[in-house]
């Protein structure tokens, strides 16, 4: 690891001005990606700005939608009783990230800003139609998460900007959802394909009111399968329509072939997992 200076501001304003002031400064949240990158010399910051001294971005609350501070840990989401009641699928996605040691440190803001195409929590937040708040020294803006990622490990964030909050619209609670990560192991895996499905349906009749499908690790960024969503929204959910949507979702992806899996296999997995995701939600809600 290269030498760096460590700065720990106690409020957001100080963090932002530090970010502006210092060249080659990196924001430090949970550190679970940042420190690994620094140890491998992929990342060589001269300054580390630790955000953990800023108290008001570490928790979440409901206020016309859910507002999650960027430094909320993955573990806080995983074990939150409120969230387990309101949006259990978010807890499920949190639960599948890394290990307990990682989840205790990793933050949602960090997970988003690291912008891994396979990021677990990012894929789920994308399905939830989330927005993010970005603050800089002279500006504050809210943008859709679907506009945030620009490629593997890259986002729209400019120098001097900080992602401070993730906002989940209030209607997210109306959905039933599921998160599936597929990898060769059961524990501690990164997904070959990740999928988040949110479904608002009349489970008696099988009518799909709204559906959102987000996919991870099958494109340079986590993506939404908008065409598949469009095919199903407002229509009946039957084996045929679900299969067609799965085919469509697969065609919307642009995966790479690497040593983890081939592009063709990832595309096949998308088909399987879209069907499985929808059916899992249907099966667990039909009787309830």
């Amino acid at each position: 690891m290269k030498n760096f200076d460590y700065i720990k501001p106690s409020n957001l304003a100080d963090a932002i001005s530090a970010l502006k002031e210092y060249e080659n400064a990196f924001l430090f949240a949970g550190g679970t990606d940042l420190l690994v990158g620094m140890k491998n010399n992929f990342l060589k910051p001269q300054y580390i700005i630790d955000l953990k001294g800023i108290s008001n971005i570490k928790s979440f609350e409901y206020q016309e939608g859910w507002h999650f501070g960027a430094l909320t840990t993955i573990r806080d989401i995983e074990v939150s009783e409120t969230l387990q009641q309101k949006m259990p699928f978010l807890c499920q996605a949190a639960s599948s990230l890394g290990s307990i040691q990682i989840r205790n440190r990793a933050t949602i803001g960090g997970n988003l800003c690291n912008a891994s195409p396979a990021a677990d929590i990012a894929t789920m937040f994308l399905a939830m139609d989330s927005q993010i708040k970005i603050i800089s020294i002279d500006n504050e803006k809210v943008v859709g998460l679907d506009k945030f990622f620009t490629g593997p490990n890259s986002t729209i964030l400019n120098r001097g900007e900080v992602l401070t909050e993730i906002i989940v619209p209030k209607d997210a609670e109306q959905f039933k959802g599921v998160y599936i990560k597929f990898g060769p192991r059961k524990g501690m895996d990164i997904g070959i394909v990740n999928i988040a499905v949110l479904l608002d349906a009349d489970f008696e009749s099988g009518l799909c009111k709204r559906i959102r499908i987000a996919l991870g690790a099958v494109a340079p960024t986590p993506i939404r399968a908008r065409q598949a969503e469009g095919l199903l929204s407002g229509n009946a959910l039957g084996p045929d329509s679900i299969n067609k949507a799965a085919e469509l979702a697969s065609s919307e992806t642009d995966p790479i072939s690497d040593f983890r899996a081939s592009a063709g296999y990832r595309k096949e997995l998308v088909k399987t997992l879209v069907v499985r995701g929808i059916n899992t939600i249907l099966a667990s809600n039909r009787n309830s």
């Binding site: 460590y6 550190g31 679970t32 690994v36 630790d50 573990r75 890394g98 290990s99 040691q101 205790n104």
Partner: peptide, 27 residues
Amino acid sequence: CDEGECGACSVILDGKVVNSCLVLAVE
């Protein structure tokens, strides 16, 4: 492993188990 992948360096920090290889001493 020094990369947060194996857990051999687990310690309890303020009540929570963490990989001490992914925590800076200043923290």
